[in-house]
């Protein structure tokens, strides 16, 4: 995909720091030297085209007292579809990816309370008969978002 230079400028400058003020665009418009209407219009278009998945705040679920983990399991090829269906049926499973490894199914579990994680894992293990590896993050090495286009 070929991006217009102004789209690129918006993406590179606005992956954070959108002002929390009554007129947030004014400051940005001066900073980027693009009129307010044009910034809004370009973000709207990039969102509808799917270049941007969203515009707004990114929330950190764990800081709100919820539980979050990455879990993995090893599924025999002939049971893959069945197990996918069981695991995806859990509302608490937000993402699920097939990966090319002996541990071939990786999913993110998000629950309202930290204790909820183990309960969901117990239920998945009971329903699938498989061992689930619970790999919560112990430390995060962050990284301001720095995705340059």
């Amino acid at each position: 995909m070929i991006l217009h230079s102004l789209d690129r400028k918006i993406i590179n400058h606005l992956q954070g720091g959108f002002p929390l003020t009554e007129n947030p665009w004014d400051h940005l418009s001066r900073q980027l030297d693009i009129p307010v209407d044009e910034i809004i219009c370009r973000i709207g278009r990039m969102t509808s085209e799917g270049v941007l998945s969203r515009f707004g705040p990114i929330y950190n679920a764990e800081k709100m007292g919820g539980g979050l983990t990455l879990a993995a399991t090893r599924v025999e090829p002939d049971r893959y579809e069945e197990v996918t269906e069981i695991i995806n049926a859990f509302d608490e499973v937000a993402h699920n990816y097939a990966r090319d490894h002996e541990l071939n199914m990786w999913f993110v579990i998000a629950t309202e309370t930290p204790e909820g994680i183990q309960q969901v894992i117990d239920r998945i293990e009971a329903q699938t008969g498989l061992k689930v590896f619970n790999m919560p993050k112990q430390e995060e090495y962050f990284l301001e978002l720095k995705f340059e286009v």
Binding site: M1, I10, I11, L14, Q15, G16, G17, F18, L20, I43, M46, E49, G50, V51, L52, S53, R54, F55, G56, P57, I58, Y59, N60, K63, M64, L145, F147, V149
Partner: peptide
């Protein structure tokens, strides 16, 4: 609780 506010690019696209 809010990590940041801004645009979220779609890597794939």
């Amino acid at each position: 609780i809010i990590r940041r506010i801004g645009v979220i690019p779609n890597h794939y696209k």
